[in-house]
């Protein structure tokens, strides 16, 4: 079984460092991007198996990245999990409405996130 590649999009250095290390410990190969443009390029060029997408991003926000991915034929089926510090119900609806497959609120419940990732990768 090949190692599955995740793309972690997060502009906050600390959170990116922490999350990528924990994901690697959990057995994933982790790519990363720090803004929306980098993220979109990485999705198209590196074809990750799943994207963890922070919504509050410089240059291009997460909603836009999500929409662009869904509009790009070669990568439109890539599963996307939105990560955001916004905890309101409408934020969840907005994430799912924009084409994200799932949604996780910061502070991240890591076991819960792993379960979401595995479920999406299996389906």
């Amino acid at each position: 079984m090949t190692t599955q590649r995740l793309l972690l999009v997060e502009d906050n250095d600390m959170n990116r460092d922490m999350l990528s290390r924990r994901l690697r410990r959990a057995g994933f190969e982790v790519l990363w991007a720090a803004d929306g443009e980098q993220a979109l390029r990485a999705v198209i060029e590196d074809r990750p198996d799943l994207v963890l997408l922070d919504i509050n991003l410089p240059i291009m926000d997460g909603w836009t990245v999500c929409q662009r991915v869904r509009e790009t034929a070669e990568v439109q089926d890539t599963p996307i999990i939105a990560l955001t510090a916004h905890a309101m119900a409408e934020d969840r609806d907005k994430a799912l409405g924009a084409g994200c497959d799932d949604y996780a609120t910061k502070p991240i419940d890591f076991p819960g996130l792993l379960e979401k990732i595995r479920r999406l990768l299996e389906s």
């Binding site: 959170n15 922490m18 999350l19 924990r22 509050n56 510090a85 916004h86 910061k106 502070p107 991240i108």
Partner: peptide
């Protein structure tokens, strides 16, 4: 405020768990 509190909390909880 909730958003801003959650960002450092995410690091605190995440690093501690790790």
């Amino acid at each position: 405020v909730s958003h801003e509190l959650r960002t450092p909390l995410n690091a605190i909880i995440g690093y501690s768990e790790m």
